[in-house]
């Protein structure tokens, strides 16, 4: 728990230096920029394994629940976030149950982040 708090504190400092706000304080546009910047800096996320069963899905959610809103980078990694569609079927946020198309927002409580329609993560459900 102490390690998590330390990591969270470090992340806040970095975000604050770069953007003037932490992810939990950021508006929609700033959060989008934070996400895109992470990937431009070479962020690799846990795209696989895809949670094939609901228990595997629930495990990822459990991990996400331990993260604060300021743990943006960790959330992106754990959720397997991508800035492009995934797989042969071109799965993307636009068709995901958690995606609010007008607000351009992922409504999954454990993520609760802005997203573009052509993005994807391994918590995708239709």
């Amino acid at each position: 728990m102490a390690d998590q708090q330390t990591a969270s504190a470090e992340a806040q400092v970095n975000y604050k230096e770069k953007y003037g706000v932490t992810p939990s304080q950021a508006d929609h546009a700033t959060l989008l920029r934070m996400i895109e910047d992470h990937f431009q800096e070479g962020l690799k996320t846990l795209v696989e394994p895809f949670p094939e069963t609901d228990r595997e899905f629930a495990k990822i959610l459990d991990n996400l629940r331990t993260m604060s809103a300021d743990d943006l980078r960790k959330k992106l990694i754990e959720s397997g976030w991508l800035l492009e569609p995934y797989g042969e079927d071109e799965m993307r946020c636009q068709e995901c149950m958690y995606y609010l198309v007008h607000r351009r927002w992922c409504d999954l409580p454990e993520l609760n982040l802005p997203a573009e329609p052509d993005w994807w993560c391994r918590l995708w459900r239709i």
Partner: peptide
């Protein structure tokens, strides 16, 4: 089992 109740059961997201 934990994670199965009040959760729509899916296979590869479907």
């Amino acid at each position: 089992a934990p994670g199965t109740v009040f959760k729509t059961q899916t296979v590869m997201g479907v």
